[in-house]
Design a protein around this nucleic acid. Structure first.
Length: 868
RNA sequence: GCCCGGGUGGCGGAAUUGGUAGACGCAGCGGACUCAAAAUCCGCCGGUCGCGAGACUGUGAGGGUUCGAGUCCCUCCCCGGGCACCA
């Protein structure tokens, strides 16, 4: 409720209104069908769901970049509420993650404690901004009531054959005794301590996102996203069209399958290359080359993908001793092993066409292999284009295909190979399956128990309903084990309590150290588990199992959190279908561009899957996406502790108030741009708010005597007001807050100059300001006689008639140069304007002893006289 | 190397998509108020020339299209982001 401040006092006002909103639950989102109150059940407003990317609650507290996006979404939320929408604007915590775990390793503090403390801090910092968040829907990915459903979704993926296990190389640091993430490894050393690291193959869970590659690509056509983000995803998915071609080996039965985008260059394939991991490498290697090949393969296995793709490195490889037959030329061509070919793309083998591929060319030069030009193209001097030439051209040295354009040749060669049964058109994706496990403590445990094969066969009942068609199995110390799901009714599988959070010596997650938790008896029908360490087999139906020790990556919880806000306390389902149908997906999603690919792609994948199994009714989770740009330090550099250019939001609020900070964050420039923080700049918005106060409130704290109830404004002010109503509304829709604020500043400048303002106009102005600076707006609104909250008052409509311009200033130009202005009507006829222009001395001077050759008149804009 | 963005006053940025470039704000300068300072209010504020009216010039560089280009086309330079042996 209104304070008794006599001058603008943000500290007092903001605290009072934040208390009011909290006590009155002003920003509660109503769930129409399911609310306990009859009146709310019948709420027939349209919904509007505005979502921010939820933060990771770090120990360092809120960064100035966080509230930038949050303020933008809050303005939209408050605006939509005023426009009569039932708005859902929630907040939560993406709280699993490495920092809390690393802190635990160092200090022994449980990550749960650290996380709780950080969330507490983040929440209170965020609350100081006065965002219109429905705090009753707050979620936390580390809450068992939340991750229970993350595990549930994983089990659905598992059951549908979209989760499997594979040995994948990871970074392991023997000195630290731990697995490291890619970004923790710098130049082959651990970032912490600088110890050497090595590649180790560990059992990993992988999700078959590649099965959705086509749909993930197609779906991008239907979303309103920044073009650059769509492009990034398109490139990441990397669809390419080409051909699979079979090359017979020279003296043996086996054949090599290759993928190429340029079947038209088949006649130029003068050698072949296999990835070092290719399964045929051992078979193909002739005895006299064995040592060299094995050495090379071993070396390649020790390198990371990063090492192998390092462009600075020269091409390396070894000859296998074997030959293949080029199906076009019937020539014998050598088969090489080289790590510039990746096992994970296509078939892990290529036909090398050095004349028309830069990588093959470099390799051929390095090892003295044949280079044969098969595509003809002249360069700008009419000479043969230098090799390698990777563009299109005319086929040459290609037998019957000579003279055909390369694009056409591709089709013909594919068709001809297909007739011979040794080739077909094929599509490949750059996208890889998603490595979904981490050797960590602070993540969602996998609800999986590993059992022996004989036990797997005995499984029935409850447990069997969750099994995939093809069993998921892996080897543990040489024994084959099968993955069995914990029944969804027994979720969540919680993390064991630990004293030490160090990873296990084997490079497994710290969970492997928790022996009680790890070894279980599993009831083969009900899926119940009991500790196995100090208990004998409880009965025939019980089988011995070992829990999965990996945990899920941080992406897991953020893949579906936007659904949970719609139904945060549902303990029966991920999301109730009524709620799902009503709220659907966010109408606007705001967050940083750094998540352009991973989070946004993973979430789309899960959403599509949830659609396929009937959990959600839509195919895309984020129909409209917007990235806020980062805020740079005063020096124009990225903010960082080491540069000492970090801006602390708390300190700014202390000095200027949350409203001024919100205004300034939005006034800085276009939301999507990166923009430097100018510490003096906030004075502008702050002064604007104080001037607003003083324009409407007198020194005694009462409404200004300039404000009159019974008289209207002068027409000029009226027009400005309605222009502002129009512009602010449109700009909010377009997320152009900087120009909306400029317009309000222009209006205030006029307001200050007049000596009479109608109460109606004053209140309208306060309403326009409310989404941006809600605290001062509430205060002014109530003092002007409005009923709180201002956010419940319907958004003002502009009057089109008032906007109609009766008189305009047009520019008069001679030969395109401005030579004065003219007041006229927007629809004045050319003759009239021309006559008026000629009368102007200045124009006349420029027309003297010249002939007017042409007159260009754009009504309401310009009059241009072309003379000579 | 490839793919996206983007270069406008001292600074952050406007410019209804081809129609008077520099709105709004910061900083600066001048003035009013004040014993004084702060705060506040008023005015000026791209560059060059001019006492002035005004003239010339100006949106990264160069060329082009147009009556008219910050905006469209071509070439180049610089900055930011993403991808990076994907055959």
């Amino acid at each position: 409720m209104a304070t008794n401040a006599t001058d603008y006092d943000p500290a007092q006002i903001e605290a009072a209104w934040q208390r009011y909103w909290e006590e009155n639950k002003t920003f509660r989102a109503i769930d129409p069908q399911t609310d306990a109150t009859a009146a709310r059940r019948d709420d027939d407003r349209s919904k509007y769901y505005v979502l921010d990317m939820f933060p990771y609650p770090s120990g360092t507290g809120l960064h100035i970049g966080h509230p930038e996006g949050y303020t933008a979404s809050d303005i939209v939320a408050r605006y939509r509420r005023a426009r009569g929408y039932n708005v859902l604007h929630p907040m939560g915590w993406d709280a699993f993650g490495l920092p809390a775990e690393q802190y635990a390793v160092k200090t022994g503090t449980h990550p749960r404690e650290t996380t709780a403390r950080n969330i507490e801090n983040f929440r209170s910092q965020i609350k100081r901004f006065g965002f219109s968040i429905d705090w009753d829907r707050e979620i936390n990915t580390t809450d068992p009531d939340y991750f229970r459903w993350t595990q549930w979704i994983f089990l659905q993926l598992f059951r549908h054959g979209l989760a499997y296990v594979d040995d994948r190389p990871v970074w392991f640091c023997p000195a630290l005794g731990t697995v490291l993430a890619n970004e923790e490894v710098i130049d082959g050393k651990s970032e912490v301590g600088g110890h050497p690291v090595e590649r180790r193959a560990l059992r990993q869970w992988v999700l078959r996102i590649t099965r959705y590659a086509d749909r993930l690509l197609a779906g991008l056509k239907n979303v309103d996203w920044p073009e650059s983000t769509k492009t990034q995803q398109i490139n990441w998915i990397g669809r390419s069209e080409g051909a699979s071609i079979v090359f017979a080996l020279a003296d043996r039965d086996e054949a090599l399958d290759v993928y190429t985008t340029r079947p038209d260059t088949l006649f130029g394939a003068t050698y072949m290359v296999l990835a070092p991991e290719h399964p045929l490498v051992p078979h193909l290697t002739k005895p006299e080359y064995r040592d060299a090949v094995e050495g090379y393969v071993r070396e390649a296995a020790g390198k990371s993908d990063l090492d192998r793709t390092d462009l600075a490195k020269e091409k390396s490889g070894v000859f296998s001793g074997s030959y293949a037959i080029n199906p076009a030329t019937n020539e014998k061509i050598p088969v090489w092993i080289a790590d510039y070919v990746l096992m994970s793309y296509g078939s892990g083998a290529i036909m090398a066409v050095p004349a028309h591929d830069e990588r093959d060319y470099e390799f051929a030069i390095e090892f003295g292999l044949t280079v044969r030009r098969v595509i003809h193209k002249e360069d700008s001097n009419g000479a043969d284009h230098p090799l390698p030439y990777t563009g299109e051209g005319t086929m040459i040295h290609s037998g019957a295909y000579d003279g055909i354009a390369s694009q056409e040749g591709r089709k013909r060669i594919i068709a001809d190979l297909e007739k011979r049964g040794i080739g077909r058109a094929s599509v490949n994706f750059r996208l890889r399956d998603w490595l979904f496990s981490r050797q960590r403590y602070w993540g969602e445990p996998f609800p999986i128990v590993w059992v022996a094969d004989t036990d797997y066969e005995r499984i029935g009942g409850n447990v069997a309903t969750g099994l995939p068609k093809d069993p998921v199995c892996a080897e543990f110390n040489g024994e084959k084990r099968y993955a069995v799901p914990i029944p969804t009714s027994r979720l969540p599988v919680e993390l064991p309590e630990l004293d030490r959070f160090q990873p296990s010596e084997s490079g497994e997650s710290p969970l492997a150290n928790s022996r009680d938790w790890l070894h279980v008896w599993l009831h083969s029908e009900s899926g119940e588990t009991r500790p196995r360490m100090d208990e004998n087999r409880p009965g025939d139906a019980w089988i011995a199992g070992v829990r999965e020790t990996n945990t899920m990556p941080q992406w897991a919880g953020s893949c579906w959190y936007y659904l949970r806000y719609c139904d945060p306390h549902n303990n029966r389902e991920v999301i109730g279908s009524d709620r799902e149908r009503y709220w659907g997906v966010p109408d606007l999603y705001i967050g940083g561009a750094e998540h352009a690919v991973l989070h946004l792609l993973y979430a789309r994948f899960w959403h599509l899957f949830l659609h396929d199994i009937g959990v959600v009714s839509t195919e895309e989770p984020f129909t409209r996406l917007f990235h806020q740009g980062i805020i740079l330090g005063e020096d124009g550099e990225k903010m960082s502790k080491s540069r000492g250019n970090v801006v602390n939001p708390d300190a700014i609020i202390e000095e200027y108030g949350a409203d001024a900070l919100r205004m300034y964050l939005m006034f800085l420039g276009p939301l999507e741009d990166a923009k430097p923080w100018n510490p003096k700049g906030i004075d502008g918005p702050f002064r604007f708010l104080r001037r607003t106060w003083r324009a409407l409130i007198d020194k005694d704290g009462k409404p200004s005597t300039k404000i009159e109830t019974d008289s209207g404004d002068d027409p000029e002010l009226q027009r400005s007001l309605h222009e502002t109503i129009k512009k602010v509304g449109e700009d909010i829709d377009r997320l152009r807050f900087n120009t909306a604020i400029s317009q309000m500043m222009i209006l205030l400048n006029q307001l200050q100059k007049t000596d009479r303002i109608s109460l109606e106009s004053a209140k309208t102005f306060v309403q326009l300001l409310a989404p941006f600076a809600p605290h001062i707006a509430e205060e002014l609104w109530e003092r002007l006689g409005g009923e709180p909250s201002v956010s419940d008052a319907p958004w003002p409509e502009f009057d089109k008639n008032l906007l109609e311009v009766r008189e305009v200033t047009i520019g008069v130009l001679v030969n395109g140069r401005p030579r004065g202005e003219l007041r006229t009507t927007p629809d004045a006829p050319e003759s009239e304007v021309l006559e008026a222009a000629r009368k102007s001395e200045r124009v006349a001077a420029h027309l003297a002893d010249k002939t007017v050759r042409k007159v260009v008149y754009v009504p309401g804009k310009i009059l241009n006289l072309v003379v000579s």
